Simulated scan of single mutants.
Amino acid sequence: MIDPKHSVSARRLDRLGPTFTAAQARERGIGSNALARLREAELIWELSRGVYRKSNSPLTMHIDLLAACIRVPHGVICLETALAVHDLTDEIPGEVNLAVPRGGPLPRITYPLVRIHRFAGATFEKGIEHWEAAAGEPVRIYSASRTVVDCMRLRHIVGDQVALRALRSYLRRRGTSPSDLLQYAELLGGAGPLRNAIQVVLD
């Protein structure tokens, strides 16, 4: 026999999106005890602390990115993680790289593995795009051109080889232009070194 409380919670669950937070569940009348029962019934999975996903939701290869972005809604996917999304690297990042504005609180996430980077607030919103980590579930990510520039100016973090391979891959794509990169470099800093690197790659 189906537990009436379980049945009510399951019906309320239908009002939530595929991935949701405990706070959103409470707004729909699903408290912590009900969430625990839904987990036991394998109707939902806990992706990260306070972040859940319905078990009948479409599969995605990017569940860690989705969970991290929900935990840090003001964050933006950046650096190696963004390179992987934009298919500009063969490396498989072992953690999710997220940028947050400098000066704000530092998010603390134990799972999934997340590395937080503080970016300047004045230029933080430049180059942000929306990308679907799962069907109908967009997250914020820096554009391919901004990501390449960020990796070049932060080579001490991502490594010279990763940054230069990303630059080479970007410039080989149809429809890309060095001027797109240099515009971001002028804005973010490091236009001189980037101009030199572009010259080396194109020669």
Rank of each mutant, 00 (worst) to 15 (best):
L47G: 03
L47W: 06
R49G: 07
R49N: 12
V51E: 01
Y52C: 07
Y52H: 13
R53G: 01
K54T: 06
N56I: 11
N56H: 14
S57H: 08
S57M: 09
S57K: 06
S57N: 10
S57W: 05
S57G: 13
L59R: 14
T60E: 08
T60N: 10
L65C: 12
L65G: 05
L66C: 11
L66K: 05
L66G: 04
L66A: 13
A67E: 09
A68R: 01
C69R: 01
R71N: 07
R71L: 15
V72F: 11
G75Q: 03
G75L: 04
V76E: 01
V76F: 10
I77H: 02
C78H: 00
C78G: 02
L79W: 01
E80L: 15
E80S: 15
A82D: 12
A82H: 07
A82M: 14
L83T: 03
L83K: 02
A84H: 14
H86A: 06
H86N: 09
D87R: 15
D87V: 15
D87Q: 15
L88C: 06
E91S: 14
I92H: 11
P93R: 03
P93A: 09
G94Y: 12
G94E: 12
E95R: 15
N97Y: 13
N97W: 14
L98C: 10
A99L: 04
V100Y: 03
V100S: 04
V100L: 10
P101T: 10
P101V: 14
R102W: 13
R102D: 10
R102M: 13
G104W: 07
G104A: 11
G104C: 09
L106R: 15
P107K: 09
P107S: 09
T110I: 10
Y111K: 14
P112M: 08
P112L: 06
P112K: 05
V114I: 09
V114E: 01
R115L: 07
R115Y: 05
R115E: 09
H117W: 10
H117Q: 09
R118W: 06
R118T: 09
R118A: 13
A120Q: 08
G121C: 05
A122L: 06
F124L: 10
E125H: 12
K126I: 09
G127L: 05
E129V: 11
E129R: 11
H130Y: 11
W131A: 06
E132D: 14
E132P: 07
A133Y: 00
A134N: 12
A135E: 12
E137W: 04
V139E: 02
V139P: 00
I141Q: 01
I141D: 00
Y142G: 02
Y142E: 02
Y142A: 03
S143G: 12
A144E: 00
A144P: 00
A144I: 00
A144M: 03
A144Y: 00
S145Q: 06
S145N: 08
R146G: 00
R146K: 15
V148W: 00
V149R: 00
D150H: 04
D150Y: 03
M152A: 06
M152V: 07
R153Y: 12
R153G: 05
R153P: 08
R153E: 09
R155C: 05
R155A: 14
R155Q: 14
I157D: 04
V158R: 00
G159I: 06
G159K: 04
Q161R: 15
Q161S: 13
A163Q: 03
A166V: 02
A166R: 00
L167S: 03
L167R: 01
R168W: 08
S169Y: 08
S169D: 11
S169K: 15
S169N: 13
Y170H: 13
Y170R: 11
